[in-house]
């Protein structure tokens, strides 16, 4: 155990360095190397941040969903495994809120420049806002609920929240919306110019590696808290046993 911690720390620092290096390459590609969009001008470069982060923002809710199901399965069978699953569920919900917030804000900034409005109540924007609200509610429930069933209630809420993810994904396929059509898998006219691909994929890789890094860091923090709480509880029990009756 004593040898494992420095190794994990070195892996974490290496992962951090790789993610920053990939993001720097992605930044250079997106801002300086990719040709300016003929129709949108330089504001079109927001695409290289907005779209990769939006794509990853739909992964973290599924991780939260899977961890919540694992928690519900293990909570009476194996409480230690359930605690680990719960820590992972909390970490993935926070990262989902981080990525969804950036998607909503960068999309709104792009919309103001491209459409002349900050917001439109179309299917994609509304379903994504709903997803953000669901995960903010999840975090608020965990933060402020004082019942002994908080983790179970949060896990059940997570199962319902995950239902919104496929609706967000399919919204621009099921309904005609103001939001642009899908870039990939949207029919014969979808796809992007080959000159845009390096900038897009460097940023997709960079924000993915970064997202996994912050997810695991937040998970490690939650595990450290759980273990510290367990240790404090054991010390309190030991102290109470030493009090003369």
């Amino acid at each position: 155990m004593e040898q494992r911690t420095p190794t994990l720390r070195n892996v974490a620092w290496l992962w951090f360095a790789i993610s920053v290096a990939v993001l720097v390459v992605g930044f250079r590609e997106a801002i300086f190397l990719v040709p300016t969009d003929a129709a949108q001008g330089d504001v079109g470069r927001i695409f290289y941040y907005h779209v990769p982060i939006a794509m990853w923002s739909l992964l973290f809710p599924y991780l939260n969903f899977a961890a919540s199901l694992a928690y519900l399965y293990w909570r009476n069978r194996n409480p230690l495994k359930a605690l680990t699953a719960d820590a992972f569920a909390l970490a993935s919900a926070e990262v989902a809120v981080v990525y969804t917030s950036i998607t909503l804000i960068t999309g709104s900034i792009w919309g103001r420049a491209a459409w002349g409005i900050w917001w439109a109540w179309d299917a994609r924007l509304t379903s994504l806002l709903l997803l953000w609200l669901l995960y903010v509610s999840y975090l608020m429930l965990r933060r402020f609920s004082s019942t002994g069933q908080t983790q179970t209630l949060a896990a059940v809420l997570s199962v319902f929240a995950a239902v919104d993810v496929p609706i967000v994904y399919m919204s621009i396929r099921w309904w005609r919306t103001q939001h642009p059509a899908p870039v990939f898998g949207g029919g014969p006219n979808s796809g992007m110019d080959p000159s845009m691909l390096p900038a897009f994929f460097w940023n997709l890789a960079g924000w993915g590696i970064w997202g996994i890094f912050i997810l695991l860091f937040r998970f490690a923090l939650e595990r450290r808290r759980q273990l510290a709480d367990q240790e404090a509880a054991l010390q309190a029990i030991e102290a109470s046993l030493e009090i003369p009756q």
Binding site: Y49, I102, T106
Partner: peptide, 21 residues
């Protein structure tokens, strides 16, 4: 407006990610 919005979008990404970590 174009360059302002691009800069604001990039600043948003940076502030939220760096703030969170």
């Amino acid at each position: 407006l174009e360059s302002r919005h691009l800069l604001f979008a990039y600043a948003t990404v940076l502030v939220i990610q760096v703030g969170y970590i």
